[in-house]
Design a protein around this nucleic acid. Structure first.
Lengths: 229, 229
DNA sequence: CGGCATGTTGAGTCAATTCAACAGCAGTGG
DNA sequence: CCACTGCTGTTGAATTGACTCAACATGCCG
């Protein structure tokens, strides 16, 4: 972990971060609590925190991307979510992190001590409400993802993934995926080969276009939506 | 839906409900908010609320059992959770329910208007904290379940299910499952036949014993734990 | 430019599904 | 009390979607 700089509470604009809902909530929380927010950077594949470790901070991504996952004893991995610039992660109410977080690419985060947030929430209902809403957003995503993992076909999963990523990180009709095929597979409950085959098929059908393996433009969102079931 | 009786706030002991953590939280919430809690009953397979409907109440099961699920357009179903006596469900922060809730058996619930809880949470940090904790518990379960759905084998899923139900509803070493094989399959992302085959195999191996199809006693929890991976 | 990560494609396998038949049991009515 | 009936659960046989194993292609980084 590499310290880059420490920002005082008043220095709290959000550079390079989209003003999406989660970002607004994070700002609201941090402002209200008047806590000190720091910035840290992590290298590609570096662990940010591990499952079972004390949950000491709340993180917001400034630059880069993060995967959070659980492992089985034999190494099988389920990625629960990808976190992109503006997203908040690491909010595990309870003393310990329930998933491991790793940087997918070189990543910079802003972080706030949990303890200060808890304290602020005890006296400020808006802070409390925002913390609750962040957890509720994670829950909504998990509920949708359970449906995907339990009941969708491989092609439906990949279609859902593409539409999710298109919504969250497309710029000028093109998305730059930060994660490899194995990560996508471990997110969708598939193997990397199955993901690759599905993407190739969508390419063959003209539903998407590769610039290269990680740069994809959707050419027919409507047909893709019809495929997500 | 059949109204049975209305209880005043002071009449608020918890009959036939285990004093588990969620029950305590519900009591704490209801007490603090001083709201009116009502009781309702639903018949087997009756819908309690539908996905997309306004989320007007928070429910606690007094007697019976409930499944909450999402459907795909062609009828494929993913059950997100089973709710048993003492459990709280229906807490979807945001205006709408995100899953459908149905009674698995004849069921009686206590319910509290959401609006009163929201109001109470705005001025009482303990209420706010309890609502957050309830959502966080749902999230923890969903995270564990994503790992199951994405990465476990059929036998591992069934083993995990049995240990979960044993923990939550075993009395005198025996559990009385309220749900049918199809429900179990839709919870575990399997077909009902696969669930049945796995249970038969565990029976053959002496790891469990059937009294009848829905009354099961675990005979070797340790071996079962080893199987859940 | 070379070397290693990453990604694609093919062939064969297998775990779980689908389709089908039957068994068990609970509730109903004669 | 017992036969009837429908629903739930079990088991078998065949199929299949996704996986595994393998070879090769691509392209990024030093």
């Amino acid at each position: 972990m590499h310290i880059q700089k420490i920002t005082a509470p008043k220095d709290f604009d959000i550079p390079r971060v989209m003003a999406a809902e989660p970002a607004d909530q994070f700002s609201a929380i941090a402002h209200s609590s008047g806590v000190i927010a720091s910035e840290f950077s992590y290298r590609k594949d570096e662990e940010i925190y591990g499952e079972g470790e004390p949950a000491e901070y709340l993180y917001q991504i400034i630059r880069g991307a993060v995967r959070t996952y659980k492992l089985l004893s034999d190494g099988r991995r389920q990625i629960g979510a990808f976190h992109l610039p503006g997203d908040v992660f690491g909010l595990d109410p309870g003393p310990e992190h329930r998933l491991t977080a790793e940087a997918i690419a070189d990543t910079t985060v802003r972080l706030v001590p949990r303890r200060s947030l808890e304290k602020a929430a005890a006296s400020n209902a808006h802070v409390a409400r925002n913390l609750w809403t962040l957890t509720a957003n994670d829950l909504r995503h998990a509920e949708d993802h359970m449906l995907l993992l339990g009941r969708k076909t491989a092609m439906e999963r990949v279609a859902t993934f593409l539409l999710e990523m298109d919504r969250r990180l497309a710029k000028a009709g093109m998305m730059a995926l930060p994660m490899c095929r194995r990560d996508i597979g471990d997110y969708l409950g598939l193997t990397l080969e199955t993901v690759s085959r599905a993407l190739s098929q969508l390419n063959d059908e003209g539903i998407l276009m590769f610039s290269n393996a990680r740069h994809i433009a959707l050419r027919n969102r409507q047909r893709l939506s019809a495929m997500e079931a």
